[in-house]
Simulated scan of single mutants.
Amino acid sequence: MARRAYYLSHPQVRIDPDLAIETWGLSDIGHARVAGLIARGLPDIGVVYSSLEVKALETARPLADALGCPLVNCAEMGENDRSATGFLPPAEFEATADRFFAEPDVSVRGWETARAAQARIVDAVQSALLDISGDALFVGHGGVGTLLFCALRGVEIDRRYDQGPGGGGQVFDWTVGHKPDAGWRRMEDL
């Protein structure tokens, strides 16, 4: 029987420029979207893997609890390392992210390169899929999720495959061993 894998980016976060980005949690809207997903029902998933960042864990933990399945923490699923700049105002962040995707082998402003982040997320997901026999949900971040999507589709790194505006909370899925059938969609459509 074909196995399915799902990649979900955390939904909206509470942005606090005074805190490290990886410690940001979900906003009220983000929590409500996770609760709404649980209320609508989830696919039959046997394990949830999550980035260690607070916003990802606050998304993954209630989903794993609702599914009654294990939650596996995976440091390698973290967002691309942006600690060199920390918080950037929205317009500056978007311009820097554009360069991150357009120049995948360059450390833009000291960020982890897109190519290195892609290798890390692909290895984490592939390793996880070797360890399990059922369907899996990976909960992480939009940037590395886009890099994973590009690798799975066999296309060059390009921001046009990004999840788009809206603050996250988007998902794509694929049959293990095959390319994703479609791109990102809202988590409400899972």
Rank of each mutant, 00 (worst) to 15 (best):
D123R: 11
V106H: 05
A128R: 03
R99E: 14
A116E: 07
V122D: 02
A117I: 04
F87C: 10
A119R: 01
D123I: 05
S127M: 07
L129A: 05
D98C: 08
V108Y: 05
A117R: 01
A116L: 13
T96F: 04
E103A: 12
A128P: 01
A124C: 11
E92D: 14
E92K: 05
V122P: 00
E103M: 08
S127N: 14
L88G: 02
W111Y: 05
L129F: 02
R109L: 14
F100V: 11
A114C: 04
L129G: 04
V108P: 00
A97F: 03
D98H: 10
W111E: 08
D98M: 12
R109H: 11
A114S: 07
V108T: 06
R109P: 00
R99H: 10
E94S: 14
Q118L: 03
D105M: 01
R99P: 05
P90V: 14
L88Y: 00
F100E: 06
S107E: 15
A119N: 04
E94W: 11
A124V: 00
D123W: 06
A91R: 13
F101A: 03
A102H: 02
A116W: 03
R99D: 15
A91I: 10
R99Q: 14
A91S: 14
D131T: 05
A91Q: 13
T113G: 08
P90A: 15
V125M: 04
E94G: 10
E92Q: 14
F93R: 07
G86P: 03
Q126F: 05
P89L: 09
T96R: 10
D105G: 13
F100L: 13
R99Y: 05
T96G: 08
A124S: 07
D98Q: 13
P90L: 15
L88A: 10
R109I: 07
A102C: 10
D98T: 13
G110F: 06
P89V: 12
P90I: 14
F101T: 03
W111I: 08
S107R: 04
V125E: 06
F101N: 01
V122A: 10
A119K: 01
A119W: 01
A124E: 08
R99A: 15
T96K: 08
E112F: 03
W111N: 07
A102D: 15
P89A: 13
D105T: 13
F101H: 00
S107L: 06
D105R: 03
G110E: 06
A117V: 02
D123Y: 07
R99L: 15
E112N: 04
G110S: 07
R115A: 15
L129P: 00
A119T: 06
L130N: 08
A117F: 02
A128M: 03
E92R: 06
R99W: 04
E112G: 12
P104R: 00
R115Y: 06
A116H: 01
A117N: 00
D123A: 15
T96V: 14
T113F: 03
F100S: 06
L129D: 08
F101L: 05
I121M: 02
E92M: 13
F100Y: 11
D98W: 07
T113M: 06
A119V: 04
A119G: 12
Q126E: 13
D98P: 00
F93K: 01
A119D: 12
V108G: 09
V108N: 03
R99M: 11
Q118G: 09
L130S: 12
A102L: 06
V108R: 01
A128Q: 04
E94D: 15
G86L: 10
